[in-house]
């Protein structure tokens, strides 16, 4: 008798834990032949709310971590993904990808993590400035993370797209709550498992599964969310998100790109999620006239 396979339960990822949705709701995912693949959590606004709380409480620690250390952690995520490559490929195929495109997507996603890992301790040098003010002050501007970012991840590019958005967000010290692809959610949960085992502190990335139409208003009107990124095409949702964002002056971004292209990875995406802080301090002016130095 052949062995009965152990099926995986796909749960959501909040604050470093894997709860089921508090709503108890789920949706069935099927393959092309309409055979059931998995039951996926249909997250509610309360799951989103809990995820924002987790993201907010993780923000202070994550944003003040040494940039070098954040880089190491992102690299560690890439390492862990490399080890689980086959699983990601298998899931993408289950959700309709060809083997070739699945492999391409997974390797590109891993490489993208490595790419942003390297930016962690460099973007401040590229985007920071020392400003030659006319008065006797030292003045410099540095990017600082915006805060908690709510992300509605790409629908089609379910793994590469997700990572292409999450990586620049957290590489820059932000924490996030991500709604993953509705039609292709499996890789996002497996990615959460990678995160959970790769030194990323709980709460830095929170991943929920579900339907954008149920959640996008909450993503955009939550008063403790600092920025929202929407990576889909629905223009009505875009408009409402932009309107809701005005409630607390959220930074709002619509990132719809071909994530397979190499120009879709760049530090300017990180810059979108940074605030520029300028600091002034007087420079004492003693011992200049006549002093030799």
């Amino acid at each position: 008798m052949s062995r009965i396979e152990v099926l995986k339960t796909y749960k959501i990822y909040i604050g470093g834990q894997f709860p089921r949705t508090e709503s108890g709701r789920y949706y069935s995912l099927t393959n092309k032949k309409n055979e059931p693949i998995a039951n996926v959590s249909l997250s509610s606004r309360k799951d989103f709310r809990n995820a924002v709380v987790a993201a907010r409480s993780a923000f202070g620690g994550w944003s003040s971590r040494a940039a070098f250390n954040r880089g190491q952690i992102l690299y560690r995520v890439a390492e862990m993904m490399e080890g689980r490559k086959d699983q990601f490929v298998k899931e993408l195929i289950l959700q309709g990808s060809t083997k070739k495109s699945a492999e391409a997507e997974v390797t590109m996603a891993i490489d993208r993590l490595v790419y942003y890992s390297g930016w962690c301790d460099k973007y401040m040098q590229v985007f920071g400035t020392v400003n030659p003010v006319a008065s006797s002050h030292f003045n410099f501007s540095v990017p600082e993370p915006t805060g908690v970012v709510a992300i509605i991840a790409p629908e089609e590019s379910s793994l590469l797209g997700l990572i292409s958005v999450v990586a620049p967000c957290i590489a820059g010290g932000n924490t996030c709550v991500v709604l993953s692809s509705n039609s292709k959610p499996l890789c996002s949960v497996t990615f959460a498992e990678v995160l959970a085992t790769s030194d990323v502190p709980g709460g830095v990335v929170n991943i929920i599964t579900g339907i954008s139409s149920e959640l996008y208003t909450h993503f955009s009107n939550h008063m403790d969310v600092n920025a929202v990124i929407y990576c889909r095409e629905n223009s009505e949702e875009k408009k409402i998100i932009a309107q809701n964002s005005s409630l607390n002056v959220k930074r709002t971004f619509f990132w719809t790109k071909d994530w397979l292209k190499s120009e879709s990875e760049n530090p300017y995406l990180m810059l979108d999620l940074q605030e520029i802080k300028t600091t002034w301090h007087p420079i004492e002016n003693i011992g200049i006239a006549g002093a030799k130095y």
Binding site: T129, N131, P132, V133, A134, S135, H137, N139, S141, T146, N226, N248, V249, E275, I276, K277, T278, T279, W280, H281, P282
Partner: peptide, 23 residues
């Protein structure tokens, strides 16, 4: 906050970026 003045206040300069966080 977008501009932090340490041991000074309300200084402005064309070379110095100015703007806010949050609301």
């Amino acid at each position: 906050a977008g501009v932090v003045w340490a041991n000074t206040y309300n200084k402005f300069d064309p070379t110095s970026p100015f703007g806010g966080y949050k609301e």
